[in-house]
Design a protein around this nucleic acid. Structure first.
Lengths: 165, 165
DNA sequence: GATGGAAAGAAGATGTGTCAACCAGTTCTG
DNA sequence: CAGAACTGGTTGACACATCTTCTTTCCATC
């Protein structure tokens, strides 16, 4: 009747289950991170990225590119984290406009605890439940969908800029 | 070297791909919904739920249960949507504490457009990319993970209330 | 029918994300 | 070298989610 005709019912099951799983997973990981290390997922993303960067520091713009965040979001987030002593901002010698973001002592401490706990939680909640075949299938499938999404996204961006020009 | 040892590298690929896919999917659907119907995913969730309810109306508490939202979030969201003319709040005759939330004309209009577009987008971006076997495997796998998450979540809640008591 | 506790919901405070305007350095061009 | 155009980054206003109270109503019991 009034339900949507283009997608079979069985497919909707998968859709809803998948979305619910992801939502719950995010929520649970966030909760654990907050409880055990006192940081949010956003904080964690920044810290990990800095940690993996050469010399443990990064320009805010690059940080934004890597995390796919708006630059204003990076700026706000970093400001808050600096206030809490997790990172430090240093002026960039070579380019007077730029700033380096680096790990502060407290940030390093929080990160090291968080990394292990986070990985453990992901293993327990997600990977332990899957067998090898399922993992392979899911990797193949999600990779394909992701590739398509990225293509669509780029096409759109190209379109937008063409329209604007 | 300093990467996490508990999860094999191949598994991390799956993890990151899956998360990226879901993020992108959310973003893209949200964007389309916003552009074509002028509403957010949150708005859409409320509208669909109301639409599927008997008599097209629902108590805020039930709405929260179905969407797994906190009641305060429901309250704020509904207040905003009411201000925009998407829904209406009506006092409940049978229980003086309660309120019914119903679809307003503008909400119905927005919803009808959105439903079809949203389903089409999901099909195009997601289902068209998957074969039957993959879908079945993913449904089985995600269902299991979700069940475990829910179990973990309940155990935790029980724990918390036990601790509080 | 008064009283105390539980439930439904609203409202305020706070932290975070987004968007647009903005500022200061930088680079390009005449 | 002056000024235009650009770029990296910040700021402020606003939308939203979450947490914590507050208000009203309901219901059980005395």
């Amino acid at each position: 009747m009034s339900t949507v005709s283009e997608v079979p019912n069985a497919d909707w099951d998968l859709w809803h289950t998948m979305r619910a799983m992801n939502e719950q997973l995010s929520r649970e990981l966030d909760r654990q991170l907050q409880r055990d290390a006192g940081i949010s997922q956003a904080d964690y993303g920044i810290l990990v990225t800095l940690f993996e960067a050469p010399e443990r520091r990064m320009r805010t713009g690059e940080l934004g590119d890597l995390l796919a965040w708006e630059k204003s979001r990076v700026s706000h987030q970093v400001a808050r984290m600096e206030a809490r002593g997790l990172v430090k901002r240093v002026v960039c010698e070579s380019d007077g406009r730029g700033t380096w973001v680096t790990l502060a002592a407290e940030g390093k401490r929080a990160l090291l605890g968080a990394m292990r706990e986070n990985a453990t939680a992901i293993r327990d909640l997600f990977f332990d439940e899957l067998d090898e075949g399922e993992k392979q299938t899911m990797l193949r499938a999600t990779s394909r969908v992701l590739a398509k999404l990225n293509a669509a996204c780029e096409a759109e961006a190209a379109n937008a800029s063409a329209g604007a020009a």
